[in-house]
Simulated scan of single mutants.
Amino acid sequence: MQETTIKKAVELVGIGLHRGVPVKMRLEPLGAGEGIIFYRKDKNLYIPLHPDSVVDTKMATVIGKRDESISTIEHLMSAVYSYGIDNLLIILDNDEVPIMDGSAMSYCMLLDEAGIATLNASKKVLKITKEIEVREENKYVKLKPSNSMIFDFTIDFSHPVIGKEYLRFEFSKKAYLQEIAKARTFGFLKEVQYLRSIGLARGGSLENAIVLDENRVLNPEGLRYPDEFVRHKVLDAIGDLSLLGCPIMGEYEAYAGSHALNHALTKQLLANPDAYEIVETKGTNEEGFVLGAAYAKE
């Protein structure tokens, strides 16, 4: 498989989830080996996608440099990762990625409009060779060897609508579009006042999140999947792991995982070079973005 970018520039306008201000986002192609780069047009500031760029993980994954930041990148990056895009310039005129409907589906539609272009360079994959784990009390996230990309996620909320949910998802672009992309972020009505007092969730509404009171879902349309909550956690995890810079071949497992734990996992993995190797994929892009055993050691 070859590295990819998008065929043409595309853009959209939406509201930022936490500050609640309008944001214009434009995606532009980049050449082979350039990676994924964010650009704050209003600050003339480039921020590369990398675990070292993360400056906050409270309620969202935030990257930054020189006291400037870009918040809530995980839903967009989940879509970009799932489309197998290796090189991309993401231009924003404010400090948040637009939240759209709270899922990744709007970004998938934008990428469909842009189209995928192959480049003259072989796609690299990060292959997990040894288990890496990060724990916080009873919560944990881990990566372990596998010949495919699997997400094994459990959540457990003391809420009558959610409770304990479990999903084992074997990654492919097709499966992502059908099973993960439409899952929305969620929050609890009792937390909204506090979040807004610390400058978060000011753009949140029933249009871009699942909102729950003590007993029920407040969105009149209900849920998109019976287990939409754990599916959105997988969506987030895909976006958070995209900061590693290339597709992963391995199994991700989480119990009550979070942005903070995912970030710690990426840092710990990169700090242990014996836990992974970079391999070069075989096959053609026409097969679609599906990672399997078809790889060659670089």
Rank of each mutant, 00 (worst) to 15 (best):
E96S: 06
P29S: 02
K190R: 15
T129G: 07
L92F: 07
D240I: 11
L17R: 05
P220H: 03
G283T: 00
L89T: 07
F38T: 04
M59C: 13
S148G: 08
D236Q: 04
F186E: 10
E136D: 15
L206F: 12
M109N: 13
N87G: 07
A79Y: 10
H50F: 00
A79R: 02
V21D: 03
E251T: 14
N215V: 12
M109V: 08
G20L: 00
L270Y: 02
L189G: 07
A32M: 00
Y166W: 00
P48W: 00
S158T: 04
R19N: 14
I132A: 08
D240A: 14
G292Y: 02
I90Q: 09
I37R: 15
F38C: 02
M105H: 10
V192S: 09
L265V: 11
G187A: 09
F289M: 10
I198L: 13
V134H: 12
G288P: 04
I278D: 04
I155H: 00
I150E: 07
K124M: 07
G204H: 09
V141K: 03
L269A: 02
S78A: 12
T61W: 01
E11A: 05
V161C: 06
Y46P: 02
G31K: 09
L218H: 08
Y107L: 05
N262R: 03
I90E: 05
P51N: 06
K190Q: 14
E74Q: 06
L45D: 05
V290C: 11
A275H: 01
I150L: 07
K127M: 12
E221T: 13
D56N: 15
M59E: 09
P160K: 05
K41M: 07
L76Q: 03
I15E: 04
V13R: 13
T154Q: 12
D42V: 00
G203M: 14
T185L: 12
K282L: 15
S242E: 12
L92Y: 12
T118A: 06
R26E: 08
M149L: 15
L241E: 08
A60V: 00
I6N: 05
Q178A: 13
N44P: 05
E113V: 06
I63W: 01
K24Y: 01
K24M: 02
G33E: 01
M249S: 12
E137Y: 03
G199S: 09
S71V: 06
V230I: 13
H159L: 06
K190E: 14
K282E: 10
D236G: 09
P22K: 11
L76K: 02
E287Q: 10
C108W: 14
A271G: 15
H18Y: 04
K142C: 11
M25A: 01
V10M: 06
L265G: 09
A181C: 03
A9E: 14
Y81H: 06
V21E: 05
R26K: 14
A201G: 03
V211K: 01
P160E: 06
R184S: 10
G16W: 11
I99H: 07
K182F: 11
E136M: 09
M1C: 08
N215S: 15
D227H: 08
G245V: 10
E207W: 11
L89R: 15
V141A: 08
I150N: 06
I37A: 01
R196F: 12
R19L: 10
P29H: 01
T281N: 04
